[in-house]
C-alpha cells in the first residue's frame, strides 16, 4: 500500500478479537483494515505514530509497533507464523 500516512488504532482498554478488524492504516490513496492476530484487550498504543506514521514502513517490528494486547487466550499464538515463515508463504504464491 506504499507510504503509511496515518494509523487509526483503538484506545487503551478496548477489546480486540482474533481475525476481526480493530483499526485502519492509511496511505495517500488507500486505506486498509488492521486485523488482530490474537484476542485480548489493548494495554498500550504507540503514541509516536501520531507524529511519525512512517515508522510503520521504516521499522515495523521495532519503533513502528501499533498496539500492545493482553492475550485472553495465549493458545491463539500457536496458530501464528513469524515474519520469515510469512515471507516464505507470500513468495511461494
Amino acid at each position: 500500500m506504499g507510504d503509511v500516512v496515518y494509523v487509526d488504532a483503538p484506545a487503551v482498554g478496548k477489546a480486540v478479537q482474533a481475525g476481526k478488524a480493530f483499526g485502519t492504516v492509511e496511505s495517500v490513496k488507500s486505506v486498509s483494515d488492521l486485523f488482530a492476530p490474537v484476542s485480548g484487550s489493548v494495554t498500550a498504543v504507540n503514541g509516536k505514530l501520531a507524529d511519525a506514521p512512517e515508522l510503520v514502513n521504516k521499522d515495523p517490528y521495532g519503533d513502528g509497533w501499533m498496539v500492545m494486547v493482553k492475550l485472553s487466550d495465549p493458545k491463539e499464538l500457536d496458530g501464528l507464523m513469524d515474519a520469515r515463515a510469512y515471507q516464505a508463504l507470500v513468495e511461494s504464491h
Binding site: 500516512v5 496515518y6 492509511e26 496511505s27 495517500v28 490513496k29 488507500s30 486505506v31
Partner: peptide, 12 residues
Amino acid sequence: LQAREQHIRRAK
C-alpha cells in the same frame, strides 16, 4: 487526507 473520501474508501 483523501483516504477519508468515497473514491478511495468506497463503502467506508
